[in-house]
């Protein structure tokens, strides 16, 4: 069991003929992901990495039974690419593209909500269900099957933490990046709900960072709903100064809002195990025996 993707996932890749799109399609196929079609306007009828390419998502759906999409198209075209996937009934729609205008992301996310589709990203490394399917750009080998559900606002730091969990024998159910932008399709609360309802997940790890209030909102949700599974967290950016964007568009402390210390405090008060440094996470999880074991 896992969330959002698994063996049943049959994906199309929008932007499959680009550098990133073809490179990562190859790696996703190698991992075992079922990619049934690619879409690049004007390249219909060709193939890329052995996958048939169509001009539109609708025409790809006439010939295949895809149920999910991953998007690599350039930022100016990402909003409409996402809408095209939603109109075709695909979900989840994983948007790898970074630097999408915030207004475009805001409109696309509302469009998805109105149509009952799930958007992961934008500016995300994607999602992986260990050993089954990967819709993303993460290195597959650092993830091992298990019962920890992991959600993060960053890419490389996720690989770092997943690798250290795997190294210590703590496997994962699904790991996903919610995205480093101010507007994301999923926030930590959405992900907590998904993991709560997944019988294959007994523990949730949240990897947050400075900026916004996603972590505080998650803390309130965990406390208010008496969240039934154990939760651990790490927050990056304690050394970050206010007013500066730390690489991610969303990673900025504005005024006194969005500091790492405030987020860690809220999470601790909600009963979450909070690690001071990334390598402390496996230790915290090993200390406390999982309620399902």
């Amino acid at each position: 069991m896992a969330v959002l993707i698994g063996k049943q996932t049959r994906a199309i890749v929008q932007g499959i003929t680009g550098n990133q799109g073809s490179f990562h399609s190859r790696l996703m196929l190698d991992y075992g992901t079922r990619i049934v079609a690619g879409v690049t306007p004007g390249k219909g009828g060709t193939t890329s990495v052995g996958v048939p390419v169509f001009d539109t998502v609708a025409s790809a759906l006439e010939k295949t039974d895809a149920n999910a999409s991953i998007i690599f198209v350039p930022a100016p075209f990402a909003k409409e690419a996402g809408m095209e996937a939603i109109d075709a009934g695909l979900s989840p729609v994983v948007i790898i593209t970074e630097m999408i205008p915030a207004r475009d992301a805001m409109i696309l996310i509302e469009y998805a909500r109105n149509h009952g589709a799930t958007i992961i990203g934008p500016n995300t490394p994607g999602i992986i269900t260990a050993g089954e399917s990967k819709l993303g750009i993460m290195p597959g080998d650092v993830f091992k099957p298990g019962k920890v559900g992991l959600a993060s606002r960053s890419g490389t730091l996720t690989y770092e933490i997943a690798a250290s969990l795997s190294h210590d024998g703590i496997g994962q159910s699904s790991c996903l990046g919610i995205g480093g932008d101010p507007f994301t399709g999923l926030n930590f609360i959405d992900v907590l709900k998904l993991f709560r309802d997944d019988s294959g997940t007994d523990t949730v790890v949240l990897i947050g960072e400075i900026g916004g209030s996603a972590e505080e909102d998650a803390a309130n949700y965990i406390r208010d709903t008496k969240y039934p599974k154990r939760v651990a967290a790490y927050i990056a950016g304690r050394a970050a100064p206010p007013g500066k964007r730390m690489g991610h568009a969303g990673a900025i402390i504005t005024g006194t809002e969005g500091t790492a210390d405030a987020k860690m405090k809220s999470l601790r008060e909600a009963g979450v195990m909070v690690a001071d440094i990334p390598s402390e996470l496996p230790r915290l999880l090993l200390q406390q025996v999982s309620p399902l074991q």
């Binding site: 960053s154 490389t156 730091l157 770092e160 400075i210 690489g247 990334p278």
Partner: peptide
Amino acid sequence: VELDGDIGIIGNGAGLVMATLDLVK
């Protein structure tokens, strides 16, 4: 982003670099 300390940091990925700053501190 320039900060006021003396240890230069280079990393890949915004989250990892933030975590690196935190560790150094």
